[in-house]
Amino acid sequence: MYRPLLFIVVPCYNEEEVLPVTSKMFLNKLLDLIKKEKIDEQSRILFVNDGSKDETWNIIVRLAKEDEHYIGISQSRNRGHQKAVLAGLMEAKDKCDITISIDCDGQDDINAMDQMVEEYLNGCEIVYGVRSDRSTDTWFKRTTAQGFYKFMSYMGVELVYNHADYRLVSSRVLDAFTDFKEVNLFLRGMFPLVGFKSTSVYYERHERIAGETHYPLSKMLSLAFDGITSLSVKPIRMIVGLGILISLISFIGVIWSVSVRLMGYSVDGWASTISTICFIGGIQLLCIGVIGEYIGKIYMEVKKRPRYIISERIGDIYENSPSTLQDKGEYRNVSEKK
């Protein structure tokens, strides 16, 4: 019976309060899947330390020494959640058959992993974890999150509604994903672009077990801007449409003013002139700002800076591996795929 080798990829940033709790949950789930003979016994839990400033990395090191199922990598500095997830996926892709990425806070139901693995065995290469219920979120968090998905969809970004970064991905998909070289990452919008057979698994979202969220409204807005400007040109097209509309209105205004002047009914006006100038000036600055955002993204892409840099590794699979401190966003194989 075929049993895929699974790596559970867990990005961590300042998670010293919740990690001791959720690490046991992940291990129990991994051992349960192994006991049920759904996955290979060499499966691992891969923690990705995203430049934490607390004891997160020390906890990961201790866990790896206590149990061989725990392994970890640490980035040289904090680079953001999306790049931490990417680092873990690229680290795992040549060592396993499937990966499941999940946040460290315990809000995503780990029991959904059973169905994810089943869907993979049934032929799906990507399995999205979708939140069926967000009643544990505050009204503000729930409203802004749902508005986020609807707005992204309206802007032309292909998304799975209410899916974040809890997903199963096969190594075959990850091999294809390596051709996506962009620096500005929005993973939940990029994986649908890869293709392959996919499905969704639904689960109820829980409250955070401990600590505070690291994704406030400001980061959510930043993620939305990254997603829109990285995966859609609709804002540029909206600017074009707005320019055409204002030009049409201005042309009509010119005809009207000339007609009034010829009929001798013109009256000198200050308020209307100032209002028109302010309106047009504001629209121009807004449009320039949107275009500037795209130019900034192009600037970052052209520089081709590394998306992540791994400074340390811990775990039994790395014990006899060569030093890889110089890795810069590209994975270098250090062990054979099981």
Rank of each mutant, 00 (worst) to 15 (best):
K65V: 00
A92E: 08
D50Y: 11
I60L: 01
A84M: 05
G72N: 06
S76Q: 12
A64L: 00
A92H: 10
D50M: 12
K93C: 11
E91Y: 11
H69D: 05
C96F: 06
T99K: 06
L63S: 02
A84T: 10
A87H: 04
L89R: 09
K93Y: 13
N49V: 02
Q42G: 14
I60A: 03
W57E: 10
W57G: 01
K95G: 14
I59V: 08
Y70S: 00
I39V: 13
K83V: 11
L63W: 02
E37W: 03
R79K: 14
I60D: 08
C96V: 12
Q75A: 12
I100F: 04
D67E: 10
R79C: 10
A64K: 00
W57A: 07
K36F: 09
D50S: 11
R44Y: 00
N58H: 12
N49W: 02
L86D: 08
I34L: 07
I98K: 06
D40R: 01
D54L: 09
S52V: 07
S52D: 11
Y70R: 03
N58P: 09
S43P: 00
E68V: 01
I100G: 10
R79E: 07
Y70G: 04
K65Y: 05
Q42M: 11
G51H: 04
R77A: 13
I102D: 05
K35M: 06
V48P: 03
T99C: 15
E55M: 13
N49T: 02
T56G: 04
I98E: 11
C96P: 01
E66C: 05
E68K: 02
S43Y: 01
I102F: 04
S76F: 12
V48Q: 02
E41M: 02
K36E: 14
Q42W: 03
I98A: 07
D32N: 09
L89P: 08
T56H: 10
V85H: 04
W57Y: 12
S52R: 09
I98Y: 10
K36T: 07
D97H: 15
R62C: 06
K35R: 14
K65H: 12
S52L: 04
K93I: 10
K93F: 10
G80P: 07
S76P: 01
N49F: 03
K35C: 07
D54Q: 09
E41N: 05
G72P: 03
G88N: 09
S74I: 02
L86R: 14
A84K: 10
E68R: 00
R62K: 15
K35Q: 13
N78T: 13
D40F: 05
N78G: 14
K95R: 14
R79N: 04
I59E: 07
I71E: 02
K83Y: 14
G80W: 06
I73P: 06
A87N: 06
L46F: 00
L89D: 06
E41V: 05
I102Q: 03
S101R: 04
